[in-house]
Amino acid sequence: MNVELKGIHKVNKILANGSIKTYYYAHRGGPRIQAKYGSPEFVTQYMALKQSASPKVKRNSIDWLITQYLESYDFKALSDASKREYKRYLTLISQKFGKAPIDIATRNDAIAAYRQWHRSMQDKQRTANYALAVLKKLMAWAVDSGNTTTNPTAQIKPIKRKGKSTRRDIIWTKDQINHFNTVAGCHVKNPFNAALLTSQRKKDIIEMTWDAYDGDTIKIRQSKTGKDVWIKVPEELKCILDGLDRTHERVFLNSLGQPWTLDGYDSSFRAAKIAAKVNGVTFHDTRGTAVTLAYIGGASFREISLMSGHSEREVEEIINTHYLNRAAAADAIDAIKKVNQAGKV
């Protein structure tokens, strides 16, 4: 390929089998180029995508408001993970309302259109409510920044789950853990099993450093809450950690021996979950599973509180209301022990 193509964004994805596949995009955050790299078709697609990459945004439209918000302090102050999620839902908002003039889109009688859009996604409750939350944030910022005086979305309520259920009802079962651990490579399943045994969030697990582990306890400052938690390391987790190479500052590394990124781990975790045919649970559900494991293992509310970062009252409410799936929890403990005993971690 003799043509200089500026701005191409290259992403290396680690697949479930440990191999690496490279994807090319017209620009960072832009559309993927489907043609084979180096081919004439690749250049043709690149040029076409670049020409359509920067459409003119009409001033004082919702699309214009979104571009202003993305440059605001409010948006830039968000965590990287929140920025990614917000951009995802701002795209949905743009697709539906982007061309609408602000003075019409912020009239009080526009509430009907927003409520109908929100309810159209009710089969995916989390998506619907997150999209609504971002829309309300955008409109609130528009008022604060002086772009409008009214926020027609303020009175729209989130969709409630039937029976008041939450993801706290969901834990990983023995079969799901076994299937995942059988398919996933060590670099993917080690952080997963560590989360199952500590109730820590994905970001805090994959960014854990060796100086946080003294052989008996782990100290983590939770990225979301800022709380310091001290975790007594269970035997199953000690087996995992003591078998890892300590030549790098980070505890958990990818298949190339480099620190994980959130996007990189998400991609590999998702691929392994698909390969294992595990459905209905997410990495975040390890939080609930871990609380259950600790409770069934005999930990007190105080001990679980110190481990998870919840208050003791929250721990008691969680266990009493959501996490008393004792049979599934006991099976999950057995599944992790089986992996360790088989020497597969």
Rank of each mutant, 00 (worst) to 15 (best):
N2R: 13
N2E: 10
V3F: 10
L5Y: 04
V11T: 07
L15S: 10
L15E: 15
G18T: 12
S19I: 01
I20M: 05
I20N: 06
I20Y: 05
Y23S: 09
Y25K: 11
P31F: 08
E41T: 12
Q51L: 14
S61N: 09
W64L: 05
Y69D: 11
D74Q: 10
A77N: 14
E85C: 02
Y86V: 11
R88I: 01
I93V: 13
P101F: 02
D103C: 00
T106A: 07
R115Q: 15
R119W: 06
D123V: 05
K124N: 13
N129T: 04
A131E: 04
A131Q: 06
V134E: 05
K137G: 08
N147G: 01
T150N: 11
T153S: 15
R161H: 05
K162S: 14
G163D: 13
R167L: 05
W172Y: 04
W172A: 01
Q176N: 08
I177Y: 11
H179L: 09
H179D: 14
F180Y: 14
N181E: 06
K189F: 04
N190T: 03
F192L: 05
N193T: 11
M208T: 06
W210M: 02
Y213N: 09
G215A: 08
I218G: 08
R221K: 12
Q222I: 02
I231E: 05
V233G: 07
V233W: 04
E236G: 00
K238F: 07
L241C: 02
H248L: 00
H248Y: 04
F252W: 07
L256Q: 12
Y265K: 11
D266G: 11
A272C: 15
A276P: 01
F283N: 13
H284I: 03
D285G: 02
T292M: 08
A294C: 01
S300V: 13
F301A: 15
S305N: 03
S305I: 01
L306P: 00
E317T: 02
E317F: 02
N320L: 13
N320S: 13
N325D: 07
A332T: 03
A342T: 07
